[in-house]
Amino acid sequence: MASHHHLDVSQSGDVSVVRFVDRRILDASNIEELGDELFALVETDHLKRLLLNFTGVEFLSSAALNKLIILDKKVKSIGGKLVLSDLRQEIKEVFAITRLDQLFNISDSEQQALADF
């Protein structure tokens, strides 16, 4: 299991629930580390069913969006599934503006997301 500094990972059945430790997923000095940790979930830990719960995340930048896009590709390449949940309204708007709400599976709550897997 890869070590995580920016993520909190738990299991709910066969779904890995990932929460973010940082409230602002943007700082460029952290974003590379965050990306590496996210990618390690797939490449090192071989997790295929990922739920990213954004509870407590107040902000994210395009650099974070780019990491999520790459993560989504990695998950899809191994036949897995990635769902995002609990995005605050402003962050939902960022996904809508960039049309990434069409690329990602986005659920209102963790409970709904787990039901959708």
Binding site: T98, Q102, L103
Partner: peptide, 21 residues
């Protein structure tokens, strides 16, 4: 334009778009 269908999965171009938005 990152919102075009063919660019949706490209991990670039969104910073400038968000600034303009």
């Amino acid at each position: 334009d990152p919102t075009l269908e063919e660019n949706l999965e490209l991990p670039s171009g969104r910073g400038l778009m968000l600034m303009k938005t």
